[in-house]
């Protein structure tokens, strides 16, 4: 077949391709392409002021007003206490910086007669989030300690109260005949945590507490507690009350819940997070921590209390039920 016979088809092919491809390329120039105006919906739908959560102002110092001579504050570490040294450091550092002594009672020092011996050497006793029950002998020793003028501070988070109640006894059990100290001092706690959906600091569980009565609330305008239990006292003072519209997680009821209470030489705070270094200087937490330190060292405990046993006596509170399997008397 002669080559010229291919000319016409090839020309037709090239022309068609050129027209079709060129036409396709020209369409966007004619129609303006597919680009459309894009509305910035993310910006339009965001109210920056409404969603900005400001940083908590943390300022001030923790100071003590008490001019008491050097006192010894004993901290319980014998009952699987779930509180870190870091958390307690704001309080313990304050005590040490003001000339007081901080000691810890270990499991060894909580056995039998060693328990009351430890208490005898102290002027105040701090218990935070115990995770093991106290024996009746140990409770009797603390009772005698407080009766003799020793200061006792209990700090308990909702989780600790829920699982172990106050002093390691379940809340349900405490309503029975267990020799728990809360019934002796008229202090009680409710299971569940406090929250406030209207007025809170950063999250709904970080509720504000306003001052109530007693020395623990002196100079306090408001305190921030991050995860607090509701505590109350039958015959004493409510030092801190959670703000209006604060509710309890278990009942969802709004009430004026107590966060810190005092009954004579004993006080209880339903939170430990206010002590953390990150929260200790928020709002008036520093003032409250200072007040708590003052409370611990302001007692006038009778010498040699809890008293050692006289011959034939088993000591205050009678015979004990030790934490260890081997029965040992408490003196």
């Amino acid at each position: 077949m002669p080559a010229r016979d291919f000319v016409a088809p090839v020309v037709a092919f090239v022309v068609l391709v050129a027209v079709i491809v060129g036409g396709a390329a020209a369409v966007p120039f004619v129609s303006g392409g597919e680009s459309t105006d894009v509305t910035n919906l993310a910006d339009r739908q965001t109210d920056i002021d409404a969603v900005t959560v400001s940083e908590a102002e943390a300022e001030g110092t923790i100071t003590m007003d008490s001019d008491a001579e050097s006192k010894t504050v004993l901290i319980d570490q014998a009952h699987a206490n779930q509180v870190s040294d870091k958390k307690l450091s704001t309080l313990t550092n304050t005590l040490v910086e003001n000339g007081h002594e901080v000691e810890y009672v270990t499991q060894e020092q909580a056995r039998g007669p060693a328990w009351n011996e430890s208490l005898r050497s102290a002027d105040a006793f701090l218990i935070a989030n115990p995770n093991q029950p106290y024996t009746s002998g140990q409770l009797a020793g603390v009772q005698a300690f407080a009766d003799a003028g020793g200061r006792v501070v209990m700090l308990s988070d909702p989780a600790s109260i829920q699982r172990f109640g106050i002093f390691g006894f379940g809340l349900q059990q405490q309503s029975n005949d267990d020799p728990a100290l809360n019934s002796e001092f008229g202090i009680s706690a409710q299971s569940g945590y406090l929250f406030n959906m209207n007025d809170y600091q950063q999250t709904f569980k970080s509720v504000y507490a306003a001052p109530g009565d007693g020395p623990l609330s002196a100079g306090v305008d408001r305190v921030v507690v991050r995860d607090a239990a509701a505590v109350s006292v039958a015959d004493g003072q409510t030092a801190l009350r959670a703000g209006e519209q604060t509710r309890l997680s278990t009942t969802r009821r709004a009430d004026t819940y107590g966060v810190a209470v005092q009954s004579g030489n004993v006080s209880m705070v339903g939170d430990t997070d206010f002590l953390t270094p990150e929260t200790a200087y928020v709002a008036d937490n520093n003032v409250f921590i200072g007040n708590l330190a003052d409370f611990l060292v302001s007692g006038e405990k009778t010498e040699n209390a809890p008293a050692p046993p006289s011959e034939g006596s088993s000591g205050p509170g009678g015979p004990s039920e030790p934490t260890r399997p081997t029965p040992e008397p408490v003196v």
Partner: peptide
């Protein structure tokens, strides 16, 4: 920090 996380979640 814990506060950073609280603020982010609240925002």
């Amino acid at each position: 920090t814990a506060e950073d996380r609280r603020r982010a979640i609240e925002s």
